[in-house]
Simulated scan of single mutants.
Amino acid sequence: MDQVRDRIRFKHNSLSTESTCISWIKQFIIFNDERHPTEMGTAKVERFLTYLATRRHASSSTQNQVLSAI
């Protein structure tokens, strides 16, 4: 997560953006049985986005935000 925070701060994003990105990444990790994101491929990301769309009824803008965070 330190690398994520560093990258967001390097891009001069707001603290709320940082917080939101970290939150989505944590949810992604938990959804995938707490595996490190580098161990997962495109299929895991697609599965998580599908879950958000079908089970949590996330909007397309939310899904885009999650994809950017991941």
Rank of each mutant, 00 (worst) to 15 (best):
M1I: 07
M1H: 12
M1N: 11
M1L: 13
D2R: 13
D2Y: 09
R5T: 14
R7T: 12
R7C: 05
R7P: 00
R7H: 14
I8N: 07
I8H: 05
I8Q: 07
I8T: 08
I8Y: 14
I8R: 09
R9G: 02
F10V: 13
F10L: 15
K11C: 13
K11M: 15
H12Q: 15
H12T: 06
H12C: 13
H12W: 10
H12F: 14
H12P: 00
N13I: 08
N13R: 15
N13T: 03
S14A: 09
S14Q: 07
L15N: 13
L15C: 00
L15E: 15
S16P: 00
S16R: 15
T17Y: 12
T17N: 04
T17R: 07
E18W: 06
E18R: 04
E18D: 02
E18S: 01
E18T: 02
T20H: 06
C21D: 06
C21A: 09
I22P: 01
I22H: 07
S23A: 11
S23W: 10
W24F: 11
I25R: 08
I25K: 06
Q27T: 09
F28S: 01
I29F: 05
I30P: 00
I30K: 14
I30S: 14
F31C: 02
F31M: 07
N32T: 01
N32R: 06
N32M: 04
N32Q: 09
D33N: 15
D33C: 09
D33H: 12
E34H: 14
E34F: 07
E34R: 13
R35E: 10
R35A: 09
R35H: 15
H36S: 12
P37D: 10
P37G: 10
P37N: 09
T38P: 00
T38H: 13
E39R: 05
E39T: 10
E39Y: 04
M40V: 05
M40D: 05
M40S: 03
G41A: 01
A43W: 02
K44N: 14
K44Q: 15
E46S: 04
E46Q: 12
R47D: 10
F48I: 05
F48A: 02
L49P: 02
T50A: 08
T50M: 03
T50G: 04
T50E: 04
L52I: 05
L52A: 02
L52W: 01
L52P: 00
A53K: 08
A53F: 06
T54F: 05
R55Y: 06
R56I: 01
R56S: 09
R56M: 07
H57N: 14
A58S: 11
S59A: 06
S59Y: 03
S60N: 11
S60Y: 09
T62Y: 02
T62L: 06
T62R: 02
T62W: 03
Q63S: 01
Q63T: 00
N64S: 12
N64K: 10
Q65L: 10
V66M: 06
V66T: 02
L67W: 05
L67C: 04
A69V: 00
A69S: 13
I70M: 14
I70W: 14
I70R: 11
